[in-house]
Design a protein around this nucleic acid. Structure first.
Lengths: 236, 236, 236, 236
DNA sequence: GATGAATGAGGATTCATTCAT
DNA sequence: CATGAATGAATCCTCATTCAT
């Protein structure tokens, strides 16, 4: 509990200056997230971030030593922070692994995909190569944890005899691909969508999750999945 | 002195100077494509484009009035004719729809994904938003035809009783998502891959195609796929 | 609670707060001296001065209206009384003038050169030009007295028939040069030393003093010291 | 011989642009030397260098990739370049080592000390610590070669039986000290001079060289040079 | 008095674009 | 046509200085 709350009568607002001090980082991170998503990392000027947060140029550097650090803070504030909760949440999941997969995808959408934070992923796809340190950070803080989370879900299905023993890594990428696509449909002008029709994320996720679940399930498998070269088999 | 400068009967290659002049724009576009794909629009320097094309800085501006114009020219020049004989080829496919889907994906990879052409997809994903006219063009020439092609494959499976009657549009996006992911794994430093492990495209496609085929197949379906909210069902 | 805050009879150390207040300027000057010597005027940040003095940035400006004023205060504060009992001490020296010279240099090193005081010499050498008033002050308080002291030693040697009748002024500068060099070897990263080898001050002084003493001595002089232009005499 | 001189009639001035191109680096180096000496490294703004050379800010960076590189080029252009000639010159020196030493010092003064280039040394003394890379460069290109040159002269004297076998390194520093002092008398407001009297460099060098020569000479040595502690011996 | 949050002028460096040759 | 020297607007970042608390 801050001093200001001790030595003043309850309910008193802290001095203006102090309140700003506390609020600043958050305001800056919000402004930065907006701009990074809107214009990309390289095209976002620090001064613009300052303007949007209602402070002067120098103030941004008071809280974040460099543009890269600002970006990292944005990532940590908006994405990485979610993982501990998620992991915990899945520890105690009781239903089928198919349900778990769907729940996982839907939850990701609700908490990240549907928010501005998803713009960060688009940004990493677009500019990651030019900022190796940032890319490494993102890899460490977002990609790897995300991969592991999905991997755990699929592995659980296999271990419990719900899923076939497919190559888990490849399967994980399939799930990630769905989510990446959803992000791009939102942030890349829906460029990959037919007729500008906007994709309904929940329906899309439900459909993909169902396909994955069934695609990984045991039961009667349609034969010939991996047999021969179809080009020879099927094409005249 | 090369022969071409001596013997000039019609049809002969034009003298070096003239040929260079004619070839210039193409060489510039090639160089620019490479660089835009590799580094993005902002991070690509005009001088670098000139260098890679073997001309001087000023020459680039002789052919393209500005960097933005160069970008637009690059994309437009590479979009044309992305979907040539594809449709015809699939008219006569004889095998199962599962095989057809897999064949379709593999072929796409060999003919497009693995080639330089996939670079413009990456470009559109990364920078499309900043060039709406171009994006519209791309949509018309690439996205829609691609979507239709896959749609036909899935619809064929449903019509022939091989696949379940899922929402075809959503399912198509799943397939596209896989391919987009593959492109990004190639052009975005594989930033979405675990531990920098390089994705083997053929294995990846085989796996995804198998999951899709099975996911869309009839047979014993694990019930409850769409029932209830898993958060209530599965979470304590 | 420290005793000083309880018992306040006259003469007792003032309460901590007050003592700090009184001590502030001195602590600031000390911190600033260190930093100015180490990094120069331009490269020293006011905040760093504050930090080293254990106060906040604003406080420095409370005592010194600007960085330049701080600099001036630092030098002025440290110049006073550089030459205390020196002269008196040498009145009664009994040995040879050669010994006296060596004793003089060694003593200077022990009492000044080796201490923090030599830092302001370095400061004046480095930044003196930008602060003419200060430089004049330094000239008056340090340079001239020092010069006179050495001059007296050499003159004594000449008067007593120990040294040749060289141009005393020039000779004095030779001695000063040695000492300046020693200061710089200490404060300028020994940039003028070969291979980063650290100079041993006492050995160096012993050597220089010996050379000076012998160089000023009577005895068989190698003739021709001042004759002709060596470029004509020695060069082919 | 440049092309322009081949394909044009003799005496024709090269096209304006080309001539500037050739002259630019020199003009920039001159402007930079002036400013570095006048204001120091840190305080010299690149734009100012450009202004003084009559070009725009960007042009400086066209020729020198960074401020540090510009500085290095200045050093190389004005100081390091001299050493090869000097070394060669001394290979063939015929006179006594005493003459050689004096000639060496005088020549250094005429070719470097008396020119603006000597300001560089003052600058390194003042700011060397803040720019380690530059300091290392200066050490390599100037300090070490200079030290070696003087060392050779003194060693020659010892080898030829002209000088006593003193510690050569220490003696070298004595010579360097003289020259450093001369530089400082020129660039540090003559701060170490008595009564603002300007030092006559030639007389000063003659005097110092004589003292060194005699100080290093054989002949009857005044006894007791290194004996006892004078403080005990001489002081009452 | 002391604090430290906030400011904004200033400086190094980059790069699209122009234009004399 | 082609060149590449020159430009200067734009951008990140630093730091002396101010001032509300």
């Amino acid at each position: 509990m801050p001093l200001s709350q001790i030595c003043c009568e309850p309910g008193a607002t802290p001095p203006k200056r102090a309140r700003r001090k506390q609020a600043r980082p958050g305001e800056l991170l919000d402004a930065a997230l907006d701009l990074f998503v809107e214009k990309g990392f390289a095209a976002t000027r620090m001064e613009e971030v300052a303007e949007r947060a209602g402070v002067s140029k120098g103030t941004v550097f008071l809280y974040f030593p460099s543009k890269e650090d600002l970006f990292k803070a944005v990532v940590r504030h908006n994405i990485s922070g979610q993982f501990p909760q998620w992991n915990a949440e899945f520890e105690s999941f009781q239903g089928s692994s198919a349900d778990m997969l769907r729940y996982c995808m839907q939850t990701w959408w609700d908490r990240v995909g549907a928010t501005k934070a998803s713009g960060i992923s688009k940004l990493m796809i677009s500019e990651g190569r030019n900022f190796p340190e940032i890319a490494a950070f993102y890899q460490l803080e977002v990609v790897t944890p995300g991969h592991k989370l999905i991997q755990r879900v699929l592995q659980r299905g296999i271990d419990q005899g719900e899923f076939r023993a497919v190559d888990v890594n490849q399967a994980v990428y399939g799930v990630i691909a769905s989510m990446v696509f959803l992000i791009l449909s939102k942030h890349s002008i829906g460029m990959c969508l037919k007729d500008d029709m906007t994709l309904d994320p929940h329906a899309y996720i439900a459909c993909q999750a169902a396909i994955f679940a069934r695609g990984l399930s045991l039961g009667t498998s349609p034969e010939g999945q991996y047999a021969g070269t179809p080009s020879q088999a099927g094409l005249q």
